[in-house]
Simulated assay, not measured.
Amino acid sequence: MTTGPEHMRDHWWWRPGWKAGRRFYNWHLTFDEQPEVHRLAEQYRTALAPVGGLDLIPDRWLHLTMQGIGFLGDIDGQNLRAIVEAATQRLAEVPAFGVTLREPIVDPEAILVPMEPAAPVRAVREAIRAAIGWSPSGSARSGCR
């Protein structure tokens, strides 16, 4: 594992607009039925368990956050359905792919595991962003940032 920050931040600190109980729509790439990923994660959980103060993520919650959409209540049902439909159509055009996990990186909020090749993962993110009308300025069709 690479060296990283001396101290980690709480990943769950409240970001602007967040408060206890408020939910946020996100697209995640998950690792269901990926035993090699689960074995790797278990090795790191075992190694990190003595450190204390860390949230060691169980296999069912391992993910790569692809794109946030917005808070529940800020996006109406019709707009949400349109986003899901557009994403479904766009993602159907992204070919299935495999990735190789690389050496973990210690980030101030998490331990990140880069994937290669990155291009297909980027294609998934770009399809999702196009579906929500995301632009580089951070605006989206839904009016969320």
Score class of each variant (00 low, 15 high):
67 Q>L: 13
69 I>K: 00
124 V>F: 12
99 V>C: 10
117 P>F: 02
60 R>G: 10
99 V>K: 02
114 P>E: 02
112 L>M: 04
68 G>W: 11
119 A>L: 14
123 A>K: 10
80 L>R: 10
88 T>D: 15
80 L>A: 12
84 V>W: 10
65 T>M: 13
55 D>K: 03
119 A>C: 01
100 T>G: 05
118 A>Q: 08
75 I>P: 04
43 Q>D: 12
126 E>G: 00
44 Y>I: 05
101 L>A: 11
64 L>Y: 10
51 V>C: 09
104 P>S: 04
60 R>K: 13
75 I>N: 03
104 P>M: 03
121 V>D: 08
139 S>R: 14
105 I>W: 12
135 S>D: 06
98 G>W: 03
50 P>E: 11
61 W>L: 14
102 R>M: 14
73 G>H: 12
123 A>R: 14
44 Y>W: 15
47 A>P: 00
117 P>A: 06
54 L>C: 04
110 A>M: 15
83 I>N: 01
112 L>I: 14
52 G>E: 07
71 F>W: 15
117 P>S: 07
102 R>H: 07
53 G>A: 09
129 R>H: 02
47 A>N: 00
70 G>M: 02
44 Y>S: 01
127 A>V: 06
88 T>F: 09
94 V>M: 07
108 P>R: 07
99 V>P: 02
105 I>M: 09
83 I>H: 11
77 G>P: 09
44 Y>M: 11
112 L>C: 01
43 Q>M: 02
142 S>C: 15
72 L>M: 11
91 L>W: 07
91 L>T: 08
131 A>G: 12
87 A>D: 08
94 V>L: 04
64 L>S: 08
133 G>P: 07
97 F>G: 06
95 P>T: 04
87 A>V: 06
131 A>E: 05
128 I>P: 00
53 G>H: 03
125 R>V: 09
101 L>M: 15
85 E>P: 05
122 R>C: 00
121 V>K: 10
136 P>W: 01
100 T>L: 08
59 D>P: 09
120 P>R: 05
87 A>K: 10
76 D>F: 12
57 I>Y: 03
46 T>F: 00
119 A>G: 12
53 G>Q: 09
75 I>F: 10
45 R>V: 12
59 D>V: 11
121 V>F: 13
70 G>D: 01
49 A>W: 02
84 V>G: 05
50 P>L: 11
120 P>G: 04
